[in-house]
Every structure is written in C-alpha cells, then in structure tokens.
C-alpha cells in the first residue's frame, strides 16, 4: 500500500471537491430560486474558460484585465439566456425545462467545439511557479488559488444570502414565489440574478480548471459530475452542495486509488460517482441536507 500516493490523492480530491462544491452551489442556486434543473452548468464553465482564454491569448490582455471582462460577459450571458430561453418556459412541465437546458448544453458544447476545436489548449502562465511543496506534497499553484477562490466564493455566498437585499429577495422567492411577489420583490429580476450569478461563479471555476488542465470540451463534464454531488447533498441545499462536492471529490480519488492498487478495472475515477449516485437515490433520495417534498392533496 502506498501511503504517499493515498495522501496526495486525498488532497487532490479535497481540492477538486471544493471546485465541485462551487459548481454544485451554482446549480443549486438556479434550482432553488427558479426551479430549473440546469443541465448546461458545465457549458458555463466551458464558455467562461474559453472566453478568458481567447481574451488572454488572442487579444493579449493581461490576466487582471481579461478575467473581469470574462466575468462581466458571463453575467450578461446568464441574464440573456434566462430572458430569451428560460422565461417562456415558466410553468411548463419539468421534462420541457430539463430538455431545454439539455438542448442548450448540446448547442453551446458544439458551438465551442466549432470555434475552438476539440484539443485541449494550455492556459497562458499566470503564476511564476507551477507547483509548490506543502508539507511534503506537491500541489499546483492554480489548485491553491482555486482553493482560496472557492472558499472566498463560499463565504461570499454566505454573506450574500444572509445580509444583502438581493440575497434575501432570492431566498424569499425560493421559499414562495407568490408571497415574494406580493411583498414587492421582482421575481423576474431574481430569476435573472440567479442565472447571472450562477454563470459568473461557474466561469470562475472554469478558468481555474482551465489553468490546471488546459481548456477543452472535457470541462463540460463538470456539469454532469455535479449531479452526484447535488443528489448527495440534497438538491436545494447550498451547504449540501459543498459537503457533497468534498465527499464526491475524495470518493472518486479513493476509487482511483483502490482501482490502481488492487482492482485494475480502469475508468473507476469517472464511473464511481455514478454508482454512488444510484446508491444514494435508493437509500436517501433527498440527500443529506435536502428538504423532503411533502405533497398534500
């Protein structure tokens, strides 16, 4: 048994897990406030990362300028998407809403593939050193940055929902749309804000992942990986998203470890979260922190 590898994998798992947590948080944000299951979450990462890449590489902008422009673009993108595509579907059955986001995911994935090609392209160097040595473990600088950014985002979310006006309005809307509307909250604005924030934060995650692995269409797989995370954590729980993200991140690395040491099946890294997903759905469908639907007739 290889303890060094194990610790390295667990640390990797925790770091990737925080990223899963952030993406899952964006997913939950949209689901909670607009009741839309966003299958195109991964494409937000993809679009964000490609936009930033294009600004940095094609237009030779420095990172401190390119990154905010990317974020501004994503905010507008999120709002436009919500207004044009999602708003007409309010009140439609769940299958329509799911399918429209799947359609969006397909559309943007192939659009990005068309514009930027299928091969991974490396991000320009943002940091001086590639990786640093922390307590005997080699950790990439971008991972450290991703950890810091993730934690900052999480704390930001906490304060946003606890104290800011818009955050409170969003929570009220998530609780009961009609009540929120009668209290003078513009539900339209809240919906648009949810998509904007979700797109923005996803794009940050996308840029971070792009820095480590290079930008490629593989980024959109985050949008699929988010499902085991949110199911584990509970579909409408932000805390659950973070906890679920960490658990799934560690789980897939552990699966990789067990596989590489004893089983030698291959591909366990990708597939283990889905087995976990099925098991969770069978035992505890509402996840760790999700609210259980109680239906009254």
């Amino acid at each position: 048994m290889n303890f060094e590898l194990l610790t390295q994998l667990i640390v990797n798992g925790l770091i990737v897990g925080t990223l899963y947590g952030v993406v899952a948080m964006c997913f939950v944000l949209i689901y909670k406030s607009t009741q839309v299951v966003n299958f195109a979450q991964g494409e937000f990462l993809l679009i964000g990362a490609w936009t930033c890449w294009a600004l940095l590489v094609k237009f030779h902008l420095p990172f401190w300028l390119g990154f905010p422009i990317t974020l501004a673009f994503m905010v507008i993108f999120g709002i436009v998407l919500q207004m044009v595509v999602l708003r007409p579907l309010i009140g439609e059955p769940i299958i329509s809403v799911i399918m429209v986001t799947i359609g969006l995911s397909m559309f943007f994935q192939s659009l990005m593939g068309w514009i930027f090609g299928v091969y991974a392209k490396p991000f320009p160097r943002v940091f001086e050193t590639e990786s640093i040595n922390l307590l005997g473990l080699q950790i990439q600088t971008a991972y450290i940055m991703s950890l810091v950014i993730s934690v900052v985002i999480m704390i930001g979310f906490y304060y946003f929902f606890k104290y800011s006006r818009l955050g409170l309005a969003m929570r009220a809307t998530a609780f009961d749309q009609q009540v929120a509307q009668s209290l003078g909250i513009s539900v339209k604005k809240v919906f648009a804000a949810a998509w904007a924030i979700s797109a923005l934060v996803s794009a940050m995650a996308g840029v971070v992942v792009g820095m480590v692995n290079g930008v490629s269409s593989a980024l959109s797989f985050f949008g699929i990986k988010v499902f085991p995370v949110v199911i584990l954590g509970g579909l409408d729980s932000i805390v659950g998203a973070i906890v679920g993200g960490l658990i799934i991140g560690v789980l897939e690395n552990l699966a990789e470890f067990v596989d590489s040491q004893w089983l030698h099946l291959g591909n366990m890294y990708t597939i283990a979260p889905f087995y976990a997903l099925v098991v969770i759905l069978m035992i505890k469908p509402y996840g760790l922190f999700g609210t259980k639907d109680i239906e009254r007739i």
Binding site: P88, L89, S96, M99, V100, I102, L104, M106, F107, L111
Partner: peptide
C-alpha cells in the same frame, strides 16, 4: 465544422420546439 453544425442544429431544434 459539419459535425458541430449538425449537433448545434439538433440542440437548437429542441430548444425552438419547446419554446
């Protein structure tokens, strides 16, 4: 780009029909 255009058209068709 044909493969991408085909996929995009399918995605777009789904979205437009749903709307």
């Amino acid at each position: 780009a044909l493969a991408y255009i085909k996929e995009m058209s399918i995605g777009l068709a789904i979205i437009l029909f749903l709307i």
